[in-house]
């Protein structure tokens, strides 16, 4: 079957593309746009490693058709750093040792980012809840939650 046209904004850049209807957003990002931050873990929406933001909200890119994302703003982990400076959340992950093999990390970062955009003053319980759709098989979750929490604290101090 033939390709269909797609207009999409990824990390602030406009793309006009032709994609196969059965191409997932994850495949589009990784294979066509060479943004390999979103990872395929389970491929069925369970593990969270393919999480990206669609219009600011975390979604599973492995279960979203590229065409279904037509017209949306997608943010991937590659779009978090601004002008070469890491997002405070990324820096916090480094500072807290919240990364081991790194496979789950971009998904964790994107969920945490989407969550903090909506809840800049969230508590630990809410953070754990927000990240509950992610699976990490090496560090455990403590450092990850602490990293996210540290960003929350800083934004409160600024106020």
């Amino acid at each position: 079957m033939s390709k269909q046209s797609l207009e999409i904004i990824v990390n602030g850049e406009n793309y006009f593309l032709a994609v196969e209807p059965n191409c997932t957003l994850m495949e589009l990002l990784r294979d066509d746009l060479e943004l390999t931050g979103a990872k395929e873990g389970c491929g069925e929406g369970v593990c969270g490693s393919c999480t990206v933001l669609m219009d600011g909200k975390p979604i599973r890119s492995c279960l979203t058709l590229a065409l279904e994302a037509s017209g949306s703003h997608i943010t991937t982990v590659e779009g978090l750093a601004q002008h070469g400076d890491l997002d405070p959340l990324q820096q916090a992950f480094i500072d807290h040792g919240a990364v081991q093999c790194g496979f789950c990390t971009s998904g964790m970062l994107m969920s945490a980012k989407g969550f903090l955009l909506e809840n800049p003053h969230a508590g630990k319980k809410e953070i754990r809840n927000a990240l509950s759709g992610h699976i990490c098989r090496c560090t455990g979750y403590t450092k990850i939650v602490e990293a996210v929490e540290s960003v929350v604290d800083r934004s409160q101090e600024k106020r």
Binding site: G45, G48, T51, M54, K57, P58, I59, R60, L63, T64, S111, G114, F115, A130, S132, G133, H134
Partner: peptide
């Protein structure tokens, strides 16, 4: 239901 990412869509 599901996770935040699932509930969003």
């Amino acid at each position: 239901i599901g996770s935040t990412q699932v509930r969003n869509v």
